[in-house]
């Protein structure tokens, strides 16, 4: 037995384990630091005015109302456009074409779209919508966000439908239910909470997206619900205000960042609890 070799192995193990502890500590500290700074800077500017007043010109008081409303409108529209397409595509992959060549190709491409750079999506919508229409518009922003929603929903819908036991499908078929009824009445119901989770995750994903909105919906200093005109959104306002030299604008940017982060965190926690109740029931 070589004692020095043994000691060296022990030492190496201790060093590696310590490094792993420290790495985890640093990672968690970083999360705490980001959230801490965000809450500290964001809360100081948080007041009722943020939700009731428009974005101000530099040097005066104001809120983020038009940006919040714009974000809500575009998010809802994006989900309304994107989620059905994603659900239908996911349905084909899980129910009709489970062993198709098409399904495996779509799955591969979809996984790539899932992490494709969002700024490219902005350029795409600029080319196909903004340029032909001749102006930046809220509907173009919603379309850009919808492009990001689709892959998220496709992925979760397929995964959740595949979790539905085949015995349920066979039971439905045995009583003579046509396939489309079996899918809409049985499979969708069994996978409902999972599909809703997917949609929630998609909302969380797009509510912080900035890059695809920069040159589709642009920004708007005023309150506007006109889908054919430029529309303000929280992320673009944060971008503009944070990079400005004015202190009150920067404070509003922090407050906006706090609002976005907590909506996103709340959405993902909600999605997670939904997914968890599914497993236990």
């Amino acid at each position: 037995m070589d004692a020095s070799l043994y000691a060296a192995r022990r030492r190496r193990n201790t060093v590696a384990m310590a490094a792993s502890f420290i790495a985890t500590g640093i990672g968690l500290a970083w999360l705490a630091l980001i959230l801490g700074v965000l809450v500290w800077n964001g809360l100081s500017g948080l007041s009722l005015a943020v939700f009731t007043e428009m974005t101000p010109p530099p040097g005066s008081d104001g809120g983020l109302l038009n940006a919040i409303v714009g974000s809500l409108i575009m998010t809802v529209l994006a989900i309304v456009i994107g989620a059905p397409i994603g659900m239908l595509a996911g349905t084909y992959m899980a129910e009709y074409g489970r062993h198709d060549k098409l399904t495996s190709v779509v799955r591969f491409i979809n996984d790539i779209l899932l992490s494709a750079p969002s700024i490219v999506v902005g350029l795409f919508i600029y080319e196909v919508m903004v340029r032909p229409m001749g102006n930046f518009s809220g509907i173009a922003g919603a379309a850009a966000l919808a492009v990001i929603v689709i892959p998220v929903v496709v992925r979760t819908t397929e995964d959740m439908l595949l979790l539905v036991p085949d015995t349920l499908r066979e039971a439905a078929a045995s009583i003579g239910l046509p396939r489309s009824r079996m899918i809409t009445r049985i499979a969708y119901r069994a996978a409902l909470s999972g599909i809703v989770t997917g949609v929630l995750l998609a909302v969380a994903r797009i509510s912080g997206e900035t890059a695809p909105l920069l040159f589709t919906s642009l920004n708007n200093q005023f309150f506007s619900t006109d889908l054919n005109a430029p529309m303000a959104s929280l992320p673009t306002v944060i971008f503009q205000f944070a990079l400005s030299p004015y202190e009150d604008w920067q404070r509003l940017a922090w407050t906006g960042a706090l609002i976005i982060t907590f909506s996103v965190l709340a959405l993902s926690i909600l999605a997670r609890t939904l997914a968890a109740t599914r497993k236990t029931s």
Partner: peptide, 29 residues
């Protein structure tokens, strides 16, 4: 049945078209 099946299939193909569309639009632009 036939309609539902075709609609879902078209949606799946749209995902492919999305990738193709992005590339084509960027090349033209």
């Amino acid at each position: 049945d036939v309609v539902f099946r075709s609609v879902t299939r078209i949606a799946a193909i749209m995902v492919l078209a999305l990738l193709g569309g992005v590339i084509v639009a960027l090349v033209i632009g």
